[in-house]
Lab assay of single mutants.
Amino acid sequence: MVVWDEDGFQGRRHEFTAECPSVLELGFETVRSLKVLSGAWVGFEHAGFQGQQYILERGEYPSWDAWGGNTAYPAERLTSFRP
């Protein structure tokens, strides 16, 4: 999975191949867009795999509404991930 700290695949970029309990440890404040290259990941609103969670299947997510636009409580950012 590849993530960016700005919408539209802009800004700082990082690629994950294993779980990440906090993007803050990588110098990111948040993740605002992402691409899942294969498989599925779970993205969490807060560090430590806490808060609202989203199943992220293979594909592109250019902004928060692409992963959470249909929920009652959409998270505008993700800060931890698990494959």
Rank of each mutant, 00 (worst) to 15 (best):
48 G>T: 10
43 G>F: 08
80 S>F: 01
23 V>N: 01
30 T>P: 04
38 S>R: 12
20 C>W: 03
57 E>R: 11
21 P>E: 14
71 T>S: 10
14 H>P: 00
16 F>G: 02
8 G>I: 14
39 G>V: 03
24 L>E: 08
50 Q>C: 04
3 V>Q: 04
57 E>V: 08
10 Q>P: 01
1 M>D: 04
69 G>S: 12
64 W>P: 15
64 W>R: 14
6 E>V: 02
67 W>E: 04
4 W>S: 02
3 V>W: 00
24 L>H: 15
56 L>M: 07
2 V>R: 04
9 F>R: 02
21 P>C: 12
10 Q>S: 09
17 T>I: 12
62 P>N: 05
73 Y>S: 12
24 L>V: 13
39 G>R: 02
60 E>T: 04
68 G>V: 14
25 E>G: 08
21 P>N: 15
6 E>P: 00
42 V>M: 10
61 Y>E: 01
19 E>K: 06
25 E>K: 09
29 E>M: 11
37 L>I: 10
69 G>Q: 09
30 T>S: 09
5 D>C: 09
26 L>K: 08
60 E>G: 04
24 L>R: 11
72 A>R: 11
4 W>A: 01
53 Q>K: 09
36 V>F: 04
36 V>D: 04
8 G>L: 06
44 F>G: 00
6 E>H: 08
1 M>V: 13
41 W>N: 00
69 G>F: 07
18 A>V: 12
19 E>S: 08
32 R>D: 01
69 G>I: 06
72 A>L: 13
72 A>F: 12
64 W>G: 07
78 L>Q: 01
15 E>Q: 10
2 V>N: 08
6 E>R: 10
56 L>C: 03
23 V>D: 00
8 G>F: 06
47 A>I: 11
10 Q>C: 09
15 E>M: 10
21 P>H: 12
51 G>H: 07
33 S>M: 00
25 E>N: 06
36 V>Y: 03
36 V>Q: 02
63 S>A: 08
72 A>Y: 06
42 V>C: 08
69 G>K: 14
76 E>S: 14
19 E>Y: 03
40 A>P: 06
72 A>D: 12
27 G>K: 07
66 A>C: 06
3 V>G: 05
74 P>K: 13
78 L>C: 04
10 Q>R: 11
23 V>T: 10
1 M>S: 02
16 F>R: 02
25 E>P: 15
22 S>H: 09
11 G>E: 01
14 H>G: 08
7 D>S: 13
79 T>Q: 12
12 R>E: 04
13 R>V: 07
8 G>E: 09
60 E>I: 09
25 E>D: 13
25 E>W: 06
14 H>R: 14
59 G>R: 03
1 M>I: 15
75 A>E: 07
45 E>M: 04
66 A>K: 08
71 T>I: 08
50 Q>E: 15
56 L>S: 02
8 G>V: 04
40 A>R: 15
47 A>H: 06
11 G>T: 00
37 L>R: 05
43 G>N: 02
63 S>H: 10
12 R>K: 15
61 Y>R: 04
62 P>A: 11
39 G>A: 04
73 Y>T: 13
67 W>A: 08
7 D>N: 09
77 R>Y: 07
52 Q>T: 10
30 T>A: 09
14 H>N: 07
22 S>L: 01
48 G>V: 05
73 Y>C: 14
71 T>R: 10
5 D>K: 02
24 L>D: 05
53 Q>P: 10
75 A>F: 10
58 R>Q: 15
5 D>N: 09
24 L>G: 07
59 G>V: 01
17 T>M: 12
12 R>A: 07
37 L>D: 01
51 G>P: 02
49 F>R: 02
6 E>Y: 02
52 Q>R: 13
34 L>M: 12
21 P>F: 12
13 R>T: 08
68 G>T: 13
38 S>N: 13
35 K>R: 07
